[in-house]
Amino acid sequence: MKYGVKDLVKRYGNLEVLDRVSIQFEENKITCILGPSGCGKTTLLNIIVGSIAQDDGEVIGFDKEDMGFVYQEDRLIEWKNVRDNIEFVLRDRMDRKTREEIIYRYLKLVGLYEYANYYPTQLSGGMRQRISILRAFAYPSKILIMDEPFKSLDINSKQTIMEFTLKLKELKGKTCILVTHDIEEALTLGDNIVILSKRPARVKRIVENLHIADDNEDNAKGYRSTLRGLIEGEFID
């Protein structure tokens, strides 16, 4: 196992948040951590990125890796334009010429080059989140952490930005960890879906999502519906 967590335990005083959580994150795949609100998903992410320490258990492979991040809020710097916002995270990683090439390539790749000189205040919420996702993908790392990145978006923006994320993922393979409480998000994006229980969070089930895009649309719909039923069943239990 290159990236994973093993038997993670976390308590805040008497409050047990994580109870022996073990997950293996497949390389270049999106692993969705799906659980009800407040179950400890963000705590799990914080332990993975090293912001907080676990009480017991092991975090494997993340300590020496650089990681890109996408949060619920876009966390763009208001006084920097789109180009400079991306450059901000690249500046200490590479020389100016390489930075320029990467920014130009990524903005072109997703058809956002015309927005390079726009300031965040000139962009819609959905567009800002796209830039935040683009910044995370442009950052030279093998791992991408996403913490409920679509939570504050409306339904239309959410669908477009999920497609945008998948497109970037196809273009630039990264090992992605997506935390969400939304089953549809997990079904659309996740290659593996880890279902967590209510607090204290335990791994209830890990489901492989085959993303069937069959010529026969009914087959694909049927598969997705079966998977949704299975996940909903775990949620209700």
Binding site: V49, D66, M67, F69, R75, I77, F88, R91, D92
Partner: peptide, 28 residues
């Protein structure tokens, strides 16, 4: 603090942080 947390997670250097975040905020 969300901006400084983001900078920390992206391992942005102290000089970049001062030049790009601290100084513009101070000037504003």
């Amino acid at each position: 603090s969300k901006i400084t947390d983001m900078a920390q997670l992206y391992k942005v250097g102290r000089i970049t942080l001062i030049r790009d975040i601290y100084i513009p905020s101070v000037i504003m």
